[in-house]
């Protein structure tokens, strides 16, 4: 019972349909996830409660430009739960530039994920200053942003302007509680989406309930001159 959908797989495990990706580093577990072997290929089960990208996929994404060989700029890599699955997907020909500022979580990220996966370039840097990144080259196909800052949308936009190719996609996780606690979450999301309008066309806006409360994922296409 496998259904192929680009590099994302739906496996039937214990009678349940579970999201999975092919393990890039065979036998390696990143965060205690389940490994399933089917016809010689090892898959890693992708938990929507742990990863917002998996949650969005489970709820239903209209476009999914993270494909084999894609170049991704990932802001807010944290300990690398989601990054590891993205790394599974883009595979050998893809590259992930994973930006993370906090040294505490970067420590785990470097040990568990970045040093084992050759397609990840870790950048320990503040995403507020994309002009100071090191080791980045060329334009990327996708910018994925999951950062808990009040000006998260502005940060994501400035990163897109520097590194996202024309026609590339932005995956923006809006953490409404990090932006303004007093505001209604819906209102915050609206406001943040408005900021995208000048450079992006918004494709989809997903409420991540029940996997994450007060979080939304916005998928938008980038037009460098708009």
């Amino acid at each position: 019972m496998e259904e192929k959908d680009s590099e994302i797989f739906w496996l039937r495990v214990d009678g349940q349909k579970r999201l999975a990706t092919i393990n890039y580093v065979e036998g390696n577990r990143v965060y205690g996830e389940k490994l399933v072997k089917k016809s010689g290929v090892e898959y890693r089960i992708w938990d929507p409660f742990r990863s917002k990208l998996a949650a969005a996929l489970t709820i239903g994404l209209e476009v999914f430009p993270i494909k084999q060989g894609a170049k991704v700029l990932y802001l807010g890599a944290s300990t690398g739960t989601t990054v590891s699955h993205v790394s599974d997907i883009v595979d050998y020909n893809g590259i992930i530039f994973a930006v993370e500022h906090s040294s505490r979580v970067a420590r785990d990220f470097l040990d568990r994920v970045a040093s084992l996966r050759k397609n990840i370039t870790p950048i320990l840097h503040d995403a507020k200053h994309p002009e100071q990144y090191f080791s980045v080259y060329g334009k990327v196909d996708v910018v994925y942003s999951d950062i808990a800052q009040p000006d998260q949308t502005e940060i994501a936009i400035s990163n897109c302007q520097m590194f996202l190719k024309d026609g590339g996609y932005l995956f923006l996780v809006i953490k409404t509680r990090s932006i303004d606690v007093t505001q209604q979450p819906k209102k915050t999301i609206e406001n943040e989406i408005k900021k995208l309008h000048s450079n992006f066309s918004v494709i989809q806006n997903i409420d991540l309930e029940p996997y994450d409360k007060d979080h939304a994922m916005v998928v938008a296409k980038y037009h460098s001159r708009g």
Binding site: L110, S115, T121, P122, I123, L124, F134, S135
Partner: peptide, 9 residues
């Protein structure tokens, strides 16, 4: 470049 990033990080 990746090695560089790993080292620096």
């Amino acid at each position: 470049l990746r090695d560089f990033a790993l080292q620096l990080s």
